[in-house]
Structure formats: C-alpha cells, structure tokens
C-alpha cells in the first residue's frame, strides 16, 4: 500500500487530516523526517496559522518538499495551499514555495462583510478535474481564512465567491492546493481526499 506523508512543521490540525485520509482509505503518517518525506508516495502540506510563521517553520524541510514535489503528488490545505503559491502579502510581502503560479492577498475591506471568511460556502467546479470527480457544482465546503489565492484560470480548479470571486482550489501539474478544509467538510471533503488517494 502506498504511503501519504502529512508534513509536520509544527502548525496545523494534523490529527483531523490524518483521520480524514485514513477514513478515505489511505495509509498516512505524520512526519517531520526528511527521509520519510523524500520516500513518500504523496504528500499533504496542512496548516492553519500565519504565512510568515508557516514558511519559517517549514524552512528546514523546504528543500525536501520542493524536491519531492517534482516526483510525487502534493496536496496543500488552507495555509498549506497558500504556501505553495509564489508569494503572500500577509505580514509583509513574503515568498512562498512557488510551486503553483499565483499569489495570496488579503480580502478587501467591504462594510458589512466579515473577515475571516468563515463557514460553509459553495464551489464552482471546473469540469474534468480528477480531484473533484463526483463532487457536484454547488457543493458546500468549510472555509476559514482571511487571505485568498489569486491564480490564472489555467491553474484554478474551483472558484468560490466571497467579497470577490477567488481561487478556492489550484493546481499545477500534480501539485494541488485547496483553500477549504476537506478534513472538516463532511462527505464532500472525504470524497476529495479519496480522489487524491486515487491519483497516487
């Protein structure tokens, strides 16, 4: 059986991601070990928190993750997705891993619109994306974030609207990122995790 390594860099709700992947039928381990990451059949880069801290804490593993991403699929979740992008303006402009073209910016301030974007919102799903196989247009998933990814249409798998339309999931080859939390999105989220497992 193939092994998914959930990268442990000290941030994020790793336990839910682990259980979600297991429930979806994968063998998954949480690890901060560079050799385990390098030997993985697929990676998950989780994360809640601030971009600058996330990149800082990922620092020692950055080269390993970058190298692995050339060989095996990577799925970034929430902050993990944002770190896959080229840059973020959270806490001052800062470079990300640059594995997916595009950047991350704060939601504009609009009276009456609360930030963070917190709760269940819908996906507009682009056809033909294997990660979204069997997930209907308009499905609800759980979001909690103040910054969003801006990516070219070619790299955008789903769009969601809050204050402005934004890329709620992105892709560059076999590097995938989802802004929402599949491990917190009930049956829809578990289906996405199963689809990811099937891609390995």
């Amino acid at each position: 059986m193939k092994t998914i390594v959930i990268i442990d860099y000290g941030l994020g709700n790793l336990r839910s991601v682990l259980r979600g992947l297991e429930k979806a039928g994968a063998r998954a381990v949480v690890s901060a070990d560079t050799s385990a990451i390098a030997a993985a059949d697929a990676l998950v880069l989780p994360g809640v928190g601030a971009f600058r801290d996330g990149m800082g804490m990922l620092g020692p593993l950055e080269g390993t993750v970058r190298a692995a991403a050339r060989e095996v699929p990577v799925l970034g979740i929430c902050l993990g997705m944002q770190m896959l992008m080229e840059s973020s303006d959270e806490g001052g402009l800062q470079a990300g891993l640059g594995l997916i073209p595009g950047d991350v910016r704060r939601f504009p301030r609009v009276p009456g619109m609360k930030v963070p974007h917190m709760g269940w919102n819908t996906l507009e799903v682009r056809e033909g994306e294997p990660l979204f196989e069997g997930i209907a247009d308009g499905s609800y998933v759980y979001f909690v974030h103040s910054y969003y990814a801006s990516a070219a249409p070619a790299h955008t798998m789903t769009t969601t609207e809050y204050i402005c339309p934004f890329a709620s999931s992105v892709r560059n080859g076999s590097v995938y990122g989802v802004q929402f939390h599949p491990e917190k999105s009930g049956a829809v989220g578990l289906r996405l995790l199963k689809n990811y497992i099937d891609l390995i």
Binding site: N13, R15, S16, V48, G49, A50, D53, L79
Partner: peptide, 28 residues
C-alpha cells in the same frame, strides 16, 4: 484536534495573549 480555540477570562486578564496567539497560529 481542535480547529479553533476560544479564550475568555485569560483574554481579559492578559490581553496580549490574543496578540501572541494570533501571531503564532493565525487569527482564524
């Protein structure tokens, strides 16, 4: 396994806990 934490009395007695926690784990 929690996704969010809720701070009550400690936020009142030491408001800087909010700043430190948000800086470390993200406001969300």
């Amino acid at each position: 396994g929690a996704d969010k934490v809720s701070i009550n009395t400690s936020a009142v007695t030491d408001p800087s806990l909010i700043d430190r926690a948000a800086a470390r784990f993200g406001t969300q």
